[in-house]
Design a binder for these strands. Structure first.
Lengths: 268, 268
DNA sequence: AAATATTGAGCAAAAAAACGCAAAAAAAAT
DNA sequence: ATTTTTTTTGCGTTTTTTTGCTCAATATTT
């Protein structure tokens, strides 16, 4: 490696001079981060013989490229970034509780109800009037816990393998249990509703379970965020004619529902 | 210790240092909290070599992010806070956790485990080492929730009618599900153990379910408060010879166990 | 009720980051 | 080869963050 210096009218050539390119520094920083699990700006500065400003700029660049994340004093690998409350908070909570308020009017004394495991259903579970007397089948732990605060709802929990992150049971046992149920009404959160492509889900297993839930119910209520109307996900649950009612945060009069109404669906 | 990096023809030596970044401290605190189920400010201060003020500020930050909750003297995992209504009147918690500490040594990789719905079992669920890989069948919501924080335990929730106060499922469905299981070991909280009258329960339905749990297991561990030894409740679960191991908060050498030992039971 | 331990608030020192600017170097254009 | 443009870098200054300390208030234990 050579370096050529222009000084006034002198031209000097240095044979062995290690000037480090920015990219080299970046690679170096990432390597060190990998083997060391952290890097400190101050140390990098002396070790790589550049100012701390430069290191800070390097780290900032690498952060933008999602190769690390910057903290006061240095940087850490992206994987140990701590999950914060906001990141896992429920999105569109206002819309979901609006839907729940409409849905709760469909619940009556003596019904046998199936509830899927969505956050919209959790909102619904919170606002079921205390005087209602009904039986609810669910496979969601949060919903079961919420309902257990209700004085007169009988809860049947559908067992199976527990999905830890969603806190719902899944698998063949769930399907078997549901197959032996006969329910009056079924409240279903949904990944997408489209007039042609029907009700769809991003997860195969969930789609499968929901299919049986719908089979087991006399009346099927799809609770659907407005953002998911006329959208489709990967896996079909049922075609649109298997659904009886759609509840969204839109007004029922919204023109987007025209075709659904033409097919005989109730829009709330 | 030194870190040496080779990059093309460059070789750079990094001096080792152990200044700790704030985020690293946070991660360590959370990790310790997860494995120890609690952290003490004074302890952390000396361990991480920073002032207690700093620790307090760390805990406060983590609390705002909903990653733990602060108490006088330290902090506890957030799960416990959710379960506070459950631990409303947990009596003899110290004795129960003493039992749990003994019981956890019986848990090994690859086991299929049945856990009944007692608070002693909840304590056990809290302290299962993170590296353990096993399958747990349970019909208790608090236990399922506690286990869902474990990275590698597979949880099978046994469905049925939910008993709201105990947060456990009961009924014929539970019996049916358990009948089809084959487990290595079964941890059972118990209402009473007596050398002649066997293991007994105050609730008929629970007694019935436990009978099937014991039938389904190769090894039966009865976890029993010292106050319940040589006591009997209303309904028989199984006679004493169907039990393999008794764990209590007494020393195993206690003379009260003499007759049990004579019958071949293991006392821990 | 007294003794001990823990906490919160305010403050100051030190370290790190941000910002604007200008020198230096590299790249591009002439 | 020279000029222009762009990029990179370091420096001085101002802000922000972090930390430890004191002291009064609170909580816990004896």
């Amino acid at each position: 490696m050579k370096v050529i210096l222009y000084l006034h009218d002198l031209y000097i050539e240095f044979a062995e001079y290690h000037y480090m390119l920015k990219q080299e520094r970046h690679q170096l920083i990432l390597r060190k981060l990998k083997s060391n699990r952290k890097v400190l700006s101050a140390h990098l500065s002396t070790e790589l013989d550049v100012s701390e400003d430069t290191i800070r700029r390097d780290l900032k660049e690498l952060e933008v490229k999602h190769l690390l994340y910057k903290v006061h004093g240095g940087a850490l690998p992206l994987e140990n970034k701590i999950q914060t409350y906001n990141e896992r908070s429920v999105s569109d909570l206002d819309k979901k509780s609006k839907i729940a308020k409409k849905a709760v009017k469909l619940i009556h004394d003596g019904q046998v109800i199936i509830m899927s495991g969505s956050t919209t259903n959790l909102e619904l579970a919170k606002i079921i009037p205390l005087k209602i007397n009904a039986t609810v089948f669910t496979y969601s732990i949060p919903i079961a816990m919420q309902l257990s605060l209700h004085p007169s709802i009988e809860i049947i929990f559908i067992g199976g393998k527990l999905n830890k992150s969603a806190q719902v049971t899944v698998g063949i046992d769930v399907v078997n249990s549901i197959s032996s149920i006969r329910a009056d009404i079924c409240f279903m959160g949904t990944g997408g509703i489209d007039i042609n492509r029907g009700m769809t889900e991003p997860d195969w297993e969930v789609a499968h379970i929901k299919k049986y839930m719908i089979q087991a119910s006399d009346h099927v209520v799809a609770m659907c965020l407005s953002t998911k109307i006329m959208k489709a996900k990967r896996y079909l649950v049922v075609p649109i004619q298997n659904i009886d009612t759609i509840i969204s945060d839109y007004e029922a009069s919204n023109e987007i529902f025209k075709e659904f109404k033409d097919k005989g669906l109730i829009i709330i």
